[in-house]
């Protein structure tokens, strides 16, 4: 039964051809993985995790991660903290201004399951 389920998963067939044809794409992909410009949207206490990551304790610049100040320049949108209904509008507005390929990372429990705000009627329990 497991096998029959697995067979239903669509797998993108890799085209077999010139092995050098993908070199340029691979280079861009590698550079993308080593150069991440983040934009932090800080709404709550999760933002406190960022300063140690940026500064001399963990130093994210050695992995190529740089904070940016404008959504146009950024690749990754960090949402650190709870998202209320009104905040969500701004998050979406910011997200739409970013250039693709773009990613969103939710930090801390508030974005995953509401965290300590799970009783609040105003916050989105799950950022997803």
């Amino acid at each position: 039964m497991v096998m029959s389920r697995l067979q239903k998963i669509p797998v993108v067939e890799e085209k077999k051809g010139n092995p050098l044809a993908r070199v340029f794409d691979d280079l861009v992909r590698f550079c993308r993985s080593r150069s991440l410009f983040i934009l932090h949207y800080c709404t709550g206490c999760g933002a406190i995790e960022l300063p140690p990551a940026m500064t001399s304790r963990f130093d994210m610049e050695r992995l190529g991660i740089q904070p940016m100040v404008s959504p146009r320049q950024a690749d990754i949108l960090l949402i650190t903290g709870y998202v209320s209904i009104k905040t969500l509008k701004r998050v979406i507005l910011t997200y739409e201004q970013m250039g693709s390929p773009k990613y969103v990372v939710g930090i801390c429990s508030c974005t995953v399951n509401g965290g300590m705000y799970w009783q609040s009627y105003a916050t989105a329990k799950k950022l997803d």
Partner: peptide, 10 residues
């Protein structure tokens, strides 16, 4: 890396 990535954005 930064320059190649920025030029490779979609």
């Amino acid at each position: 890396y930064d320059i190649v990535k920025l030029h490779g954005k979609r």
